[in-house]
């Protein structure tokens, strides 16, 4: 019943240059970094990627074990990908265990794949760990703005995300409260087979839905009362501004990307 301990959006509060970067820089930076990971095909280039991410992590002051927690749910996927690549890549035979064949290329590909996945997860976790969910949606809204011309409701999408994120903790609290109240009335959420468990959820879900609708109604009323009418002509309380820090980050990223692309096309490393 440790619902409160589940971290979602998992922002790690700290004072660091990475935290203070403009969310737009961080979102674009993360996307660029992820794309770059798929261009990388040598260990030396990987070393460069690891160096960059390692520096960002060190500067951000987020403890490594916090970031590593994000690996847990995908660990099986990583191991599976490694195994498949290890045994099913054709090439120079090194070892054979019955139908399973280990090739030199297989080892390389398995290692690359695992590294790539780990870096992808670490990279994207860094974005959510150093950016508040609200800043994140603000950043996304700004980045989607140009697409409004072709009918993409950027503001509405961002507002939906903001509200959803904002109410996750509220609904978690609510779930925790209702669960405790029903437990105090002798409800049992843990034992029994699948059907019994599903039935035991009714006393939890009904009040939760009632609460969710009540909260939604209250919020809609509060927004109406403050004359909310969508994104048209809306200004912000904390406008996003690029600073010199963002320029520096963009420059580092551009350099990194250039090196990666050059090394791939020219086969430098």
């Amino acid at each position: 019943m440790a619902i409160k301990d589940i971290t979602l959006g998992q922002y790690y509060p700290a004072e660091s240059p990475v935290h203070r970067l403009d969310p737009r820089t961080k979102i674009v930076g993360t996307v660029v970094y992820m794309v770059s990971l798929f261009c990388v095909n040598s260990f030396s280039a990987f070393a460069l990627s690891i160096l960059l991410l390692g520096t960002v992590i060190a500067v951000s002051k987020v403890p490594l074990r916090f970031i590593a927690k994000g690996l847990k749910p995908v660990l099986i996927l990583i191991i599976l990908t490694m195994l498949i690549n290890l045994f099913l890549t054709p090439g120079e035979l090194l070892l054979s265990l019955g139908p399973l064949k280990v090739t030199e290329e297989g080892i390389y590909r398995a290692a690359f794949m695992a590294l790539r996945l780990v870096l992808l997860i670490f990279g994207s976790s860094m974005l959510t760990l150093t950016t508040k969910p609200i800043q994140l949606t603000d950043g996304m809204e700004a980045l989607m703005k140009p697409f409004e011309k072709i009918g993409l409701p950027a503001h509405e999408l961002a507002m939906m995300m903001t509200i959803a994120l904002r109410f996750i903790p509220t609904l978690m609290d609510e779930t925790d409260k209702i669960m405790k109240a029903q437990t105090a009335r002798g409800a049992d959420f843990e034992s029994g087979n699948f059907k019994e468990k599903a039935k035991a959820l009714v006393p939890l879900l009904v009040p939760l839905f009632v609460s969710a609708f009540r909260i939604a109604g209250d919020l809609a009323m509060a927004m109406e009362a403050r004359c909310y009418r969508g994104g048209e002509g809306r200004t912000r309380m904390n406008p996003m501004r690029y600073s010199g820090r963002d320029g520096a980050a963009a420059l580092i990223l551009a350099l990194y990307l250039a090196v990666i692309i050059f090394s791939r096309t020219l086969g430098l490393f």
Binding site: E174, K177, I178, A181, Q182, R185, V202, P203, V206, P207, V210, S211
Partner: peptide, 8 residues
């Protein structure tokens, strides 16, 4: 607190 929210 607010036990009415547990009715179902």
């Amino acid at each position: 607190q607010y036990p009415e929210y547990q009715l179902f």
